[in-house]
């Protein structure tokens, strides 16, 4: 009996499911890349990280939110860059030697995020990860997978898919606003 036709069809329909929905990763522990932002330590699931590159020439893209620095040329591919400080509503700072871009795979896309400094890759066991607190953090708790503890320090483990979720990253582009805003974009990002 040949039923492959119908099976394939259903399979195809269910194949593309956004990884962003899965929130269990934090609870299960694993490897995390940690980095600093305004002196605080954050973590990203290592599986989401594609590469880390030094700060490079960013081309600003007009009429996008402030936290989108612009685009870079990653070996012939154009990818967008998000300044995580601005995304989290922190003040921007001059870039230093330590400033770098972490290229992540989020929402099925390659996106670079600018962080103050990359720290290390840590193994954090499931029992060392706590539920995110409902208040008291600088960062929207929706973005947090959990609080990881390692070597007596606390790290905010980010759900990068949510941080770079669609409504924030892409739906902003075509809005026309009559509210003039400050012009931080190029200053913060286009140095070098």
């Amino acid at each position: 009996m040949n039923r492959t036709g119908t099976d394939t069809a259903t399979h195809n329909q269910t194949k593309h499911r956004s990884a962003g929905v899965d929130r269990t990763a934090g609870g299960s522990g694993g490897k995390f890349l940690t980095f600093f932002l305004r002196g605080e330590e954050y973590g990203l699931e290592i599986l989401k990280v594609q590469e880390i590159i030094g700060m490079m020439g960013v081309t600003p893209v007009p009429r996008t939110p402030e936290f989108i620095c612009g685009v870079i040329n990653l070996r012939g591919k154009v990818i967008p860059i998000v300044d995580l400080r601005l995304k989290f509503g922190m003040e921007s700072v001059e870039h230093t030697e330590e400033t770098c871009i972490i290229v992540v795979q989020a929402q099925g896309l390659q996106i670079g995020i600018v962080v103050d400094k990359v720290s290390e890759v840590l193994d954090i066991a499931a029992e060392d990860i706590e539920e995110p607190p409902s208040f008291g953090t600088d960062v929207n708790t929706d973005y947090i997978l959990g609080i990881g503890k390692s070597e007596g320090r606390v790290k905010l483990l980010l759900d990068i898919d949510r941080v770079l979720s669609n409504q924030d990253v892409s739906a902003i582009s075509s809005t026309v606003t009559s509210e003039p805003s400050t012009q931080k974009v190029e200053e913060t990002c286009s140095t070098q």
């Binding site: 893209v61 007009p62 996008t64 990818i79 967008p80 896309l109 990253v169 892409s170």
Partner: peptide, 11 residues
Amino acid sequence: LGGGIGNVPGV
């Protein structure tokens, strides 16, 4: 410009 940015008017 990469999927994350979407349509930018004028670009």
